[in-house]
Design a protein around this nucleic acid. Structure first.
Length: 888
RNA sequence: AGGCGCGUAGCUCAGUGGGAGAGCGCCACCUUGACGUGGUGGAUGUCGUCGGUUCAAUCCCGUCCGCGCCUACCA
């Protein structure tokens, strides 16, 4: 079968088509970045998905939007680069491989560090390409030859360089501070890696006796097991109830320790009894209080969340078992005042959902304040713009309250911290080369850090590390700063803000000019998709069922700024119909243009010489080009989809194609050639316009259009043609379309069978317009299946005629015995009510001197024009009603 | 507690300081030279509530009601 015969298949069958073009684009290297001097540059770096990831609908949205912009700019002729790649995802990946080991009955400790890391690399080699392949399947037009991985050699070099420089600048430090700890992952977590969930818990009120036995104070806690680590009780300095306690001290129950009472403004006198137990090693606030008052730190838990030796008799118990035991003991010994139900937010590890534990620990930190200031400045003076703008507030708010970033993680998979400690003199050695001896005392007895860096540390460098930094590369010169970052709002701070900081600090230039934050994709009820709820829409299944173009189009149509996306599978089905519509329109067009010479399109060079309908569609095409380009430039993706949809379905298919059928079948060579030429040009324009959203179906159609054709991916994006704009033609067509709708309405209301040919009359008092309508009576008849159309200045209407009033023009169709007087009156009544309401409004305005004095002239003239039309329409309606009433 | 956003047709959502829109669904009719994954016509809305600004408010401002999200150290 030849290509053209294939295209004539009745419905669009996407499965074979998609694979064909994926192969073609790859073989021809259509997505390779060009670096042609003098051309504008457009670049995007992909938000690198986790190497463990599987394509979900969020990825599908994110990458569809990026691909739209990339394809658009590539077609505009820019030097275009979309960098793909994956993230090594420290904790997530380590967890996956540990689970794999578990099935073999092994732990990572059985293997040891080196063998384990080796094992992760093996896993990555086998399974790490999954998400990348799925992105390719979506048609993502990344330059796949430039795929990067946050652990690959070049990026690791960049990470090392950044770490060393920041350390030497004093912006990285090591210290014993309180951090969030995941007892399951055995690692520290950054503040924003902890998810707070509202939880129904209990608030325990515990009696803490005074050391002198003269009484007790009640403290409240949700985590009674931490009391074993209490090293003080805090009260407000102005709280009269407790002034005397300063000298006495507290005897901590279940232990033999005496702990001091301290006075601190942080304490809320209104909460509970106004006394707060202080556990500096296991609570962030308490840690601060402890610092202020020099309280001891006592860790009572180990890395696994079990009680340690400092917990005395409770040593070895899991933290939650210990909680139970402590509560029992407190109750038994009479220390428990009461237990209340209590709702509060509990922190969970964002990776494994285990309840996290604040704990003191020796960690590495980045002083982010000086870096954050640069980022805020860049946003304030619009070197970086954020879309939608509602995020500015949130951004500033967060950046102004930012805390130092804990970057060390106690896991094995990741960039190992390039720091050595000298066992002899204690010197901390951080160099870009691997030292063999202490740089201070020369001892060879140096030991490397075991921690690795937070995964976000390497992804923060992504916009420049992927382009070869710290080398000065052509890529950096051409493509940095990148044009736009497209990502989900939930990683604004994990990632976006940190890229700003690092980019500005090391490149002295923003990493991207624009940030577009899209919504999370939810189910049709607005709920988060989750496997356990069972409401997940799997993009891979959708692509199989409806086609990739339909999925891409749906996501684009939903991507309105500032609103969450509630995805409904029925919508995808609806847009599949649209893809099919485009396919069939092309199929029809091809029947008439497949064999014609490409030179037919020359007819558009002089639009003035073309018949009305062609001037009209060219003008409408010009508008569509303008609207689509503007929407693309402003990241109004939903508008890009909607303009294309409306234009293609309603203007191109429903009106234009129907209208020109007569010409296409005509014997008149000029009429035929004009129809073929304009049809070809408009179809080509449509395919290009919508190609960034629906690359597969457009490429397939494009390839079978007449003439020698290269791929659409590197063809030219439509440019607004001023010469095509023709407001006059648009106005004239609107009149004809109004009349056609009127006649169709009469037929439908009177139940005239579509196949029966009837005669219609148009009453138009205006001679010029009457003449014009008359000239187009053939087209009107074709579109409404009339046997004839007569245009008259006035007429005696037959008694039983179906009527329709279009502004000051009346249409009637004699229908002997076919008119249902009652339903006709009902219809007129409805219409009259509408017109009456509008007239009332208009008359009200026009008789209001305030309106006449204040409203702009243009509006007043418009209202007057409106009144004129409504008046004459009203007259026609009343007349018709009168006639019908006389009949009945 | 603070911040942000949302409330428009049965459902999912666009939209605008000056005549209320789309898709799906619904009703009626139709194998009309590409498409029944289609065509034509139709029905459906105090544009959440109450106020204010304005010549004019679905749109701007404020109140209230309902819903969602984010941030936060209240044990």
């Amino acid at each position: 079968m030849s290509k053209k015969e294939e295209l004539l298949s009745k419905g669009y069958e996407f499965s074979g088509v998609e694979q064909k073009w994926l192969d073609h684009w790859r073989e021809k290297g259509c997505f390779s970045a060009q670096m042609v001097p003098g051309k504008p540059a457009f670049s995007i770096v992909i938000p690198p998905p986790n190497v463990t990831g599987v394509l979900h609908v969020g990825h599908a949205l994110n990458n569809t939007l990026q691909d739209i912009l990339t394809r658009y700019h590539r077609m505009c002729g820019d030097n275009t680069l979309w960098v793909p790649g994956t993230d090594h995802a420290g904790i997530a990946t380590q967890n996956v491989v540990e689970r794999q080991l578990a099935t073999e009955g092994k732990t990572r400790d059985d293997l040891g560090r080196d063998a384990f890391v080796e094992r992760v690399w093996e896993w990555r080699g086998e399974k790490g390409g999954t998400i990348t392949n799925q992105l390719k399947k979506m048609g993502a037009s990344c330059d796949w030859d430039r795929e990067r991985f946050t652990m690959d050699e070049g990026l690791s070099t960049a990470v090392r360089e950044v770490f060393v420089r920041l350390f030497k600048e004093g912006l990285i430090y090591k210290g014993d501070y309180i951090v969030n700890w995941c007892p399951r992952c055995h690692t520290a977590l950054a503040d924003d890696e902890v998810e707070h969930e509202d939880t129904k818990g209990k608030l325990y009120h515990i009696r803490y006796p005074y050391a002198d036995g003269s009484g007790h104070v009640v403290v409240a806690t949700t985590r009674p097991e931490t009391m074993l680590g209490d090293t003080g009780v805090a009260v407000h300095p102005e709280d009269e109830r407790y002034q005397h306690l300063g000298d006495i001290g507290i005897k901590l129950p279940l232990t033999d320790r005496i702990i001091p009472v301290v006075f601190d403004n942080h304490v809320d006198r209104e909460f509970g009894t106004g006394a707060l137990k202080v556990t500096p090693s296991h609570d962030r606030d308490d840690y601060e209080i402890g610092l202020r008052h020099n309280l001891d730190r006592l860790k009572v838990m180990d890395d696994k969340g079990c009680m340690n030796k400092a917990a005395g008799d409770y040593c070895g118990l899991d933290r939650f078992e210990c909680r139970k035991k402590i509560v029992e003991d407190l109750e038994r010994l009479g220390f428990m005042e009461k237990i209340e139900e209590y709702d509060h937010a509990v922190g969970h590890c964002y990776r494994c959902k285990t309840v996290s534990e604040p704990t003191t620990s020796v960690q590495w930190f980045v002083s982010v304040k000086p870096l954050a200031e640069k980022a805020v400045a860049a946003v304030r003076d619009e070197r970086i713009k954020i879309y939608p703008k509602t995020w500015y507030n949130t951004f500033y708010n967060w950046m102004d309250n930012i805390r130092d970033w804990c970057i060390s993680r106690q896991i094995w998979w990741g960039h190992r911290i390039p720091a050595w400690t000298c066992e002899e003199c204690g010197e901390l050695i951080v160099e870009s080369f691997d030292p063999t001896e202490c740089t201070k005392c020369g001892s060879a007895d140096i030991i490397r850090e075991t921690d690795v860096l937070d995964t976000w540390f390497s992804s923060a460098l992504w916009p420049f590390s992927t382009m070869g930094w710290p080398e000065k590369t052509e890529e950096l010169a051409t493509f940095y700063p990148t044009s736009v970052l497209i990502t989900s709002f939930d990683i604004l701070f994990f990632w976006v803000a940190r890229m700003m900081m690092m980019g500005l600090h090391f490149m002295d230039e923003v990493p991207f000019k624009d940030v577009y934050l899209h919504a999370l994709v939810r189910d049709k009820h607005g709920k988060k998709m989750s496997k356990s709820t069972g409401n997940v829409i799997d993009p891979l299944v959708v692509m199989e069922e409806y086609g990739t173009d339909a999925m891409r189009f749906t996501l684009t149509a939903f991507a309105a700024q500032g609103r969450e996306i509630k995805l409904d599978e029925e919508r995808i089905e609806g847009y599949r119909h649209f893809i099919n519509k485009l396919w069939n329109a092309a199929r029809f067009a091809l029947m008439h243009i497949a064999d014609c010479d490409e030179s037919v399109r020359d007819v558009v060079a002089e639009p003035d010489k073309l018949p009305l309908v062609h001037r009209w569609i060219l003008s409408r095409t010009a508008s569509a080009i303008k609207d689509v380009r503007l929407a693309l430039d402003e990241y109004r993706f939903n508008d890009v989809a909607s303009v294309n949809y409306q234009f293609i379905w309603y203007e191109f298919c429903a009106w234009y194609l129907e209208w020109i059928k007569a010409d296409l079948f005509s014997e008149d060579p000029l009429a035929k050639k004009q129809a073929q030429g304009v049809l070809l040009v408009v179809l080509e324009t449509i395919l290009k316009l919508i190609h960034p959203i629906t690359p597969f179906v457009t490429e397939e159609i494009w390839s079978v259009l007449p003439g020698q054709r290269d791929t659409l991916t590197t063809s030219s994006y439509p440019v607004l043609q001023e010469a095509w704009k023709d407001d006059n033609a648009v106005g004239q067509m609107e009149l004809l379309m109004g009349i056609i709708t009127g006649i169709r309405n009469i037929r439908s209301e009177a139940d005239v069978h579509p196949s029966s040919r009837i005669e219609a009359f148009v009453i138009c008092a205006d001679r010029q317009r009457a003449e014009f309508i008359s000239q187009n009576s053939l087209a009107i008849s074709d579109m409404t299946r009339l046997s004839g159309l007569e245009v008259v200045p006035q007429a005696e209407k037959p008694d039983d005629a179906g009527t329709y009033i279009y502004n000051d023009i009346e249409i009637f169709v004699p229908l002997k015995g076919l008119v249902d007087i009652d339903s006709e009156l009902e219809k007129l009544g409805r219409e009259r009510k509408k017109v009456e309401a509008k007239l009332k409004q208009v008359n009200g305005k026009l008789s209001n001197s305030k309106f006449l004095n204040n409203a702009p002239e243009k509006i007043i003239a418009g209202e007057e024009e409106k009144k004129k039309l409504l008046d004459s329409k009203m007259a026609k309606i009343l007349e018709a009603e009168e006639r019908l009433k006389n009949l009945g």
